[in-house]
Design a protein around this nucleic acid. Sequence first.
DNA 1: CGGGGCTCCTGTGCGC
DNA 2: TGCGCACAGGAGCCCC
Length: 268
Amino acid sequence: MPELPEVEVITRELRSMFKGKRIKEVLVYAERVIRGVSKDEFVKELTGKRVIEVIRKGKAILFNVEDLWLIIHLKINGQIYISESKPPWSMIKFRFEGEKRCLYLCDFRGLVEIRLSKDPYKETFLAKMGPDALSEEFTFEYFYSKIKDSRSKIKSLIMDQGFIAGIGNIYAAESLFRAKIRPDRIAKSLSEEEAKKLYVAIKDVLQDSICYGAAVKKYFVDGKDRGDFSDKFLVYNREGQPCRICGEKIVKITLSGRGTYFCPVCQV
DNA sequence: CGGGGCTCCTGTGCGC
DNA sequence: TGCGCACAGGAGCCCC
């Protein structure tokens, strides 16, 4: 669920609601989602501090709270709810000054991660992260320089967060379909022209999804309707259904242990 | 260097 | 109808 577009939509919402606000209360229901510090230290470090900015890099949400950064990774099923009452599977609650509704971090699987850092780009997983797929640093030159030498399958490569940050299983499938490239192609077998098509497709599909409100409607409950990009998927989760371009049945294979969907006619 | 398998968890959906 | 077993959008780790 939460890949770059979903996390971007959520981050924008969090920024508009909580930027400039002071954290009044932090309540931890599930200690194990906190990494690196104890629960008591976590609460003590955050309580009373003001949110300076809320940004995203790749699939991570970063709250700058004065001298500190709070980093949230939603993993597979993590959800953020803005609510007056406690939703199911709440792991942590944040209450802000002058705001009735609290921020709840929820996950029925409990795989979400939250951590603190003074310098996240040096101290955390962000240090190993490649350029964000929608950032200026993610240039075609950078993209192609890696592709032309890599023996990995192209889908695995574009999902490698150390190479490009933000693409998960869904948008990997969708961008490869748009670029008409099979997911199991070895990266270095792509022509420069194919790589260019894929580069453009990645930026386009992520941007389109964000414009449509991404696929977060049923996960992010704040009373607002924001569409659902999952209606727009061309191959993801469409095994056996007709390709929207040529009518051929969409095929599902397993690649690096992940379900992988493509059109055997359109994608070469 | 690439990839397979296992791990953290639990809910859903499909096939028998 | 009910049960049991993959499988699930992430990612770190170990191992070959």
